[in-house]
């Protein structure tokens, strides 16, 4: 059994909303697991069940070899960082960090030692006497992290902790969280709907949709090998291009071109997925793109345009290529990196 084990966990809220469907998942000790998915898919619910803040309707959760379904949150030895930080407004930073330790009856000197260590680690030593209302967003974020770290819990839970920060600080904190987790080595679950955050932080990633884990794996596995239409569309930025198509006798006819000898026995209506970065310009082209707009990111250019049948399409090329508006590009798929999904079920078929 792994460190954290969810077995057929289901959550139905009292009003009848089924937020999580029979989800099974295991997280290894020291692993950084990320739950990613669109708003309302049940990420927070799943996390809160691990924390003990929501009852489990059905299924079992084991933490460190112990069934915790009925264990009170205060006894679970988990720490959580909330989206709005939930710092204790009437306590100064020191007491915010110390409160959890005091409740466990730890002696004063040890508390002071631990708080100071955590504060140093998070570079908040200078603010220990301040109230949370006198801190900036980033500093509050650190205090919230400090409060989690100082207790040395079995598991860290993060519920979109970066979404209240501005873009730059967000990236900075993201890197810090990752570094910190590696340094402290605590098992962590991080919830986000930002796929870049998910990709960069995760050791493993659970892509959740409608209360179901669609795919579980390392970020690269999921990026390279999405198992469903939803995952393919959700992971990757800019989004994967999808074209309608049809397979007959191992030949796929998409909108305006054909691919022969595909690696699938499937026959029928499909969606063809091509990532913008898996295309290159070449003579014997498959796809013709009429350029509408070029976004220059410096390192890359994002080229938005339309196919012959007016379908929107995106192509990503190195930033040193100059591409004119209204020009026509002939594009080819690199190394046969395309994905075919059954149109009716959304399942991958190649």
């Amino acid at each position: 059994m792994s460190f954290l084990d969810l077995k057929n966990v289901t959550k139905i809220y009292p009003n009848g909303t089924k937020a999580v469907h029979e989800t099974s998942l295991s997280v290894d000790e020291g692993e950084f697991m990320v739950f990613v998915g669109p708003s309302g898919c049940g990420k927070s619910t799943l996390l809160r069940m691990v924390a003990g803040l929501e009852d489990i309707t059905e299924g079992d959760i084991n933490l460190d070899g112990k069934l915790i379904n009925e264990v009170d949150p205060s006894e679970r030895d988990v720490a959580m960082v909330f989206q709005n930080y939930a710092l204790y407004p009437h306590m100064n930073v020191y007491n915010n960090l110390a409160y959890g330790l005091k409740n466990r009856g730890i002696d004063k000197e040890t508390i002071e030692q631990k708080v100071n260590d955590a504060a140093k680690l998070l570079q908040i030593s200078d603010y220990l006497q301040r109230k949370p209302s006198m801190l900036s967003g980033g500093q509050r974020q650190r205090v919230a992290m400090g409060r989690a770290i100082v207790r040395n819990p079995k598991i860290f839970l993060f519920d979109e902790p970066l979404s209240n920060l501005d873009a730059k600080l967000r990236i900075q904190m993201r890197i810090e969280i990752k570094k910190l987790q590696q340094k402290v080595g605590v098992t962590s679950i991080f919830v986000t709907h930002d796929q870049v955050e998910a990709m960069t932080l995760a050791d493993r990633l659970a892509v959740i949709n409608n209360g179901i884990i669609e795919q579980l794996g390392t970020p690269i596995e999921i990026y390279d090998n999405p198992k469903s239409l939803f995952v393919a569309g959700f992971i990757g930025s800019p989004q994967m291009n999808f074209l309608d198509g049809n397979i007959k006798n191992k030949t796929l006819s998409a909108e305006g071109f054909e691919i022969k000898d595909i690696d699938s026995d499937f026959e029928g209506e499909v969606k063809l997925g091509i990532r913008p970065e898996h295309l290159s310009q070449s003579e014997n082209s498959l796809i013709n793109l009429k350029v509408d707009l070029v976004e220059q990111l410096g390192s890359d250019n994002l080229v938005y345009g339309q196919l012959k049948n007016k379908k929107d399409f995106c192509y990503r090329c190195p930033g040193n290529q100059t591409i004119e508006k209204n020009s026509n590009l002939s594009l080819n798929i690199e190394n046969n990196k395309y994905y075919i999904f059954d149109k009716s079920t959304g399942k991958r078929v190649n």
Binding site: P73, S74, E75, A79, N84, A86, Y88, H90, Y99
Partner: peptide, 22 residues
């Protein structure tokens, strides 16, 4: 806010200490 109660719970506060400390 509910989060205050929730995070106090995770910090090991019981019903009585939440009342007194918060």
């Amino acid at each position: 806010p509910d989060e205050l109660l929730e995070s106090a719970k995770l910090d090991g506060a019981n019903a009585w200490s939440f009342f007194i400390d918060f």
